[in-house]
């Protein structure tokens, strides 16, 4: 089975937006090896003739009518915000693509 290097774990941590110490990366890469070896057992029976199930329910087409229901007040919406300003959520500078 594929093993995860420290760099692999660092890349996963980047995708998952978690800052990790070197020690954490080291520990996780060891633990991941053990866990991945265990969970890779699924491949023994997951043959091509078996259909995947992503959900246990056979439900289809569950929808709601296009009707407006009350929103939160802006005060309630912002009540848990670490910072707010001008009735908006205040967040640190965004580095990235201009949306």
């Amino acid at each position: 089975m594929s093993t995860l290097s420290r760099a692999d774990v660092a890349n996963l941590a980047r995708l998952a937006r978690i800052e990790m110490t070197d020690q954490e990366l080291e520990d996780l890469s060891t633990e991941m090896d053990v866990i991945l070896t265990a969970v890779a057992r699924v491949q023994e029976v997951a043959t091509s003739d078996v259909k995947p199930t992503s959900h246990p329910l056979p439900l289809r087409n569950v929808v709601r009518a296009d009707v407006v229901t009350p929103s939160l007040t802006p005060e309630a919406a912002l009540s848990g915000a670490p910072a707010n300003e001008e009735q908006r959520f205040r967040v640190p500078q965004i580095l990235g693509e201009e949306a």
Binding site: V42, Q43, V45, A46, V50, K51, P52, T53
Partner: peptide, 9 residues
């Protein structure tokens, strides 16, 4: 994907 197949089984 494989885990989803196990779910079927």
């Amino acid at each position: 994907g494989s885990a989803q197949k196990v779910r079927t089984l």
